[in-house]
Amino acid sequence: MDTLGALELATERPTKELMDHPPVGRVAPLITNVMWRNLLAQSLYQITVLLTFQFRGKSIFNVDKRVNNTIDI
């Protein structure tokens, strides 16, 4: 935990307000509620885009059978 605190102080300029904040306890969550909300929103967006491309990609990009499966791994 000391490493993360040192990294935080090294990456952000120490201001009076920053130095007045109490230290974060060991039981404090690493991912806050705002972070969870942003993670959920981003994952739903990515899933929506990927599923749209997977099932409607041919009609969106006007791909015919000749270009189907051109990337073989």
Rank of each mutant, 00 (worst) to 15 (best):
L4T: 06
L4E: 15
L4V: 05
L4W: 14
G5P: 01
L7R: 13
L9R: 12
A10I: 14
A10D: 14
A10W: 10
T11V: 15
T11P: 02
R13N: 09
P14A: 14
K16R: 15
L18E: 11
L18Y: 12
D20F: 01
H21G: 00
V24R: 11
G25L: 07
G25E: 03
R26G: 14
A28N: 06
P29Q: 02
T32M: 05
N33R: 14
V34C: 03
W36Y: 10
R37V: 08
R37T: 04
N38W: 09
N38S: 06
A41N: 07
Q42W: 02
S43E: 02
L44A: 08
Y45Q: 07
Y45V: 04
I47W: 00
T48Y: 07
V49A: 02
L50I: 11
L50C: 04
L51R: 10
T52L: 15
T52M: 12
F53P: 00
F53Y: 07
F53H: 09
F53I: 07
Q54L: 06
Q54D: 04
K58V: 05
S59R: 13
F61V: 13
F61E: 03
D64F: 01
K65L: 08
R66C: 04
V67T: 08
N68I: 08
T70R: 15
I71K: 01
I73K: 11
I73R: 06
I73F: 13
